[in-house]
């Protein structure tokens, strides 16, 4: 093994398993809002994401938009995670998930039940209800939730094996709004895959989530709306690798007081109080 191969091997982070599927990338990328299908495809490749989110929308008569998009995704060779974006009731979300399962041929669903148009905050009550019905129907549910610990427990009881708390409201790019609660959630569910979904604006936000021990990050707008989405995809991939590697390496404890890093012993000019 040469030095470069060794460096790659040394930097590789642990694989991530979600509902039995194992991936090496800890970035899940959204496919919406890119300037063109080509930029989308190039950004997905640059991000090294192995899972991308998709949706279902009304097709126009004779329309081929859906078919074209589906072919683009298939060419990328990635796993798809269909969402229920825009659904406001459990019923809408359940039907949307069922339509997505037939269209995309996957039982994975990123479950969104939206409570409020301004915040796009999850309706936690509706989310739990829909998660239960979908799990019983054979779905593997990735719930878009908040950092609320009680809701997380209800979702787990409903059959969810993965949780996706928001960092901040969708599309805001504000990063991790409630680090204290996110840290609590991480500590409370040490063995559950936790993915930060939504609100990530900068690679540093994603890196921080990974340093905290989150298993992965799901983002869309921060890449799609970047000046150069392809370069930003690379930046996020690097940040997420870096944060995960740091977590696995074990971060130092934070301290209140300063402590010299250079050895004190043998410091020149140090006066022991002796007299010449």
């Amino acid at each position: 093994m040469n030095a470069i191969d060794k460096a790659h091997a040394d930097s590789a982070t642990a694989p991530l398993t979600l509902y039995g599927a194992t991936v090496s990338s800890r970035l899940l990328l959204g496919t919406a809002q890119y300037p063109s299908p080509q930029v989308l495809a190039d950004a997905v490749r640059a991000s090294r994401a192995e899972i991308v989110t998709v949706s279902v929308r009304r097709e126009s008569a004779g329309g081929k938009a859906g078919q074209r998009f589906w072919e683009l995704i298939r060419e990328l060779g990635v796993l798809v995670l269909p969402n229920t974006a825009g659904c406001r009731t459990p019923k809408e979300a359940i039907t949307t998930a069922q339509m997505a399962r037939e269209l995309f041929g996957t039982d994975w669903v990123k479950l969104e039940v939206i409570a409020n148009d301004d915040t796009l905050q999850p309706d936690l009550f509706g989310l739990v209800e829909a998660a239960r019905v979908l799990t019983e129907d054979g779905f593997k549910v990735f719930p878009y939730t908040t950092e609320d610990l009680g809701a997380a427990e209800r979702l787990m009881s409903a059959g969810c094996e993965v949780l996706m708390p928001w960092g901040a409201p969708i599309g805001t790019g504000r990063g991790l709004n409630n680090k204290y609660a996110l840290r609590t959630l991480r500590n409370y569910f040490p063995g559950v895959p936790l993915i930060i979904d939504a609100g990530i604006g900068a690679p540093s936000h994603a890196c921080e989530a990974m340093e905290m021990g989150y298993d992965a990050v799901l983002l869309n707008t921060a890449v799609a709306k970047a000046g150069d989405p392809i370069r930003m995809a690379k930046a996020f991939a690097a940040a997420i690798d870096s944060g995960r590697t740091a977590f696995e390496a074990g971060l130092m404890e934070m301290r209140d007081m300063a402590e010299p890093s250079t050895p004190v012993a043998g410091t020149p000019f140090f006066d022991f109080g002796g007299k010449a």
């Binding site: 959204g30 496919t31 949706s55 279902v56 929308r57 859906g66 998009f69 995704i73 969402n83 269209l103």
Partner: peptide, 10 residues
């Protein structure tokens, strides 16, 4: 009736 097809999503 709803008739839907695959689309971009976040």
């Amino acid at each position: 009736v709803e008739i839907v097809s695959p689309r971009q999503g976040g």
